[in-house]
Design a protein around this nucleic acid. Structure first.
Ligand SMILES: [Mn+2]
Ligand SMILES: [Mn+2]
Ligand SMILES: [Zn+2]
Ligand SMILES: [Zn+2]
Lengths: 156, 156
DNA sequence: ATGCAAATGCAAATGATTTGCAAAAAGAAA
DNA sequence: TTTCTTTTTGCAAATCATTTGCATTTGCAT
């Protein structure tokens, strides 16, 4: 348990250090202007743990500056996606939902009752995917693994 | 190689036998009327190997009966999906694409250049998914695994 | 054949996202 | 700072996939 606590702290530290990649620098480097709406949207993205959709981002944004438009949110998401700064998800078949792309790769488990999104990572699965693709004569560019589940009644 | 050919034949036989589950019977059982549009759409679905979207199904349908409407295609897809007769996919983020649900479960590898969809199946991955979900306290209701790849230059 | 609920076609509505365009803001230069 | 050029924005209208309201047709049990 002490060990467990130790790792939790390490994780938090990594998080704190890793947290906000300097997107503004990256944007400049890409010859893109750093505007007020973009700064606000980036802040929202880098400071949230969840996977908000454009509308949710928009609402959080107008809280800070009510002149921001939904189009700008969409345009910014497209821009950031092309830059590789964010990932776009289409859980279920709903509207696109986003998250910043900084950490290590992970996949998602969606609680079908609550809509909660839980992140997980499995090296084994990633490896198997590679093997399968290779056997079929392909290189994987990206992939998408989503588990849709319900809290189990069984004891853990 | 002889053995390989043998199994190919077995697979074809299974296919031929398995091919068209009696959807009309199933529909009746569900208290649903078996209409001309539905019969045509079912035929299209059961006799194709690919994963067509509503528009493609619509076009194939009006070839047989030009009075069929796109709304009916959509309504029928929803109906069949609820009955569990077909599966709906949202590759990339494009329009829904469908396939009949008869065979064993499989996942998809999408060729990012050509759009080709290749089916594959991995018991190992399925098992791992279960394990992961269980470890997180969940039961999987369904899942979605899509590999997006490009034909590899490397020798196989 | 008759009757009635269920299904259809068509057009209009929806929801998510994109786009055209005139006005505003960013950043380089002066 | 002021000026100038280019990018970005907000807004409204357009697009795309899908759904829905409603009058009409159809399936099918009687
Ligand atoms: Mn995530
Ligand atoms: Mn398939
Ligand atoms: Zn993964
Ligand atoms: Zn699977």
């Amino acid at each position: 348990m002490q060990l467990n606590a130790f790792w939790r702290i390490i994780t938090l530290m990594k998080h704190a250090l890793n947290q906000k990649p300097d997107y503004e620098k990256e944007l400049r480097k890409a010859g893109v202007r750093i505007t007020r709406p973009r700064r606000i949207i980036l802040d929202i993205l880098t400071s949230t743990e969840d996977h908000p959709d454009a509308m949710k981002i928009f609402h959080r944004a107008i809280e800070i500056d009510d002149s921001i438009s939904l189009s700008t949110v969409y345009r910014t998401m497209n821009l950031l996606e092309e830059m590789g700064a964010i990932h776009r998800h289409a859980f279920n078949g709903g509207p696109s939902r986003f998250e910043q792309a900084h950490g290590e790769h992970h996949d998602h488990l969606i609680d079908v009752d609550t809509g909660d999104v839980i992140e997980f990572q499995s090296d084994k699965i990633e490896k198997l995917q590679e093997e399968i693709a290779r056997a079929l004569g392909y290189d994987i560019i990206h992939h998408r693994l989503e588990l849709y589940g319900r809290k189990s009644k069984r004891p853990e």
